[in-house]
């Protein structure tokens, strides 16, 4: 069973993300709302995929991606954002983000990522 880590400071967005997950197979979805909990949950669960909201207080999604990689996570990272400015895209590339999902997130967008990732 694939493990997915969703990092978003919005409880609503995390709940919606889980609601949009495919129902035809089981996933373990682990939630975090900031850098500290992302590091804790990420190292404990070693997810296959990590979905990171970009706009969060303290540390943004690309900062957290860097930190998770430094902590040894070997996962595919995806950024969730409504902001596709060049600076964000460059930061995502520098952080080794594999793909960007433009908000609002839909079941189809998640399904596409899972399919492309072979999960």
């Amino acid at each position: 069973m694939a493990t997915i880590l969703i990092v978003d400071d919005s409880a609503t967005s995390r709940l919606l993300f889980k609601a949009h997950m495919p129902k035809d197979r089981p996933f373990q979805v682990v939630e975090a709302d900031d850098l500290h909990s992302a590091l804790q949950k990420g190292t404990a669960h070693q997810p296959d995929l990590v979905f990171l909201d970009y706009n969060m207080p303290e540390k943004n999604g690309t900062d957290i991606a860097h930190a998770l990689r430094e902590a040894g996570l070997d996962a595919a990272f995806f950024l969730l954002t409504a902001n596709t400015q060049e600076s964000v895209l460059e930061a995502a590339e520098a952080a080794g983000i594999q793909g960007i999902l433009e908000k609002p997130i839909t079941a189809e967008k998640i399904q596409d990522v899972l399919q492309d990732s072979g999960v």
Binding site: D9, S10, T12, S13, N55, M56, A82, P104, I105
Partner: peptide
């Protein structure tokens, strides 16, 4: 801004 994102999502 976070509130806007959540409101848009729902």
């Amino acid at each position: 801004d976070s509130l806007h994102g959540a409101a848009r999502a729902v």
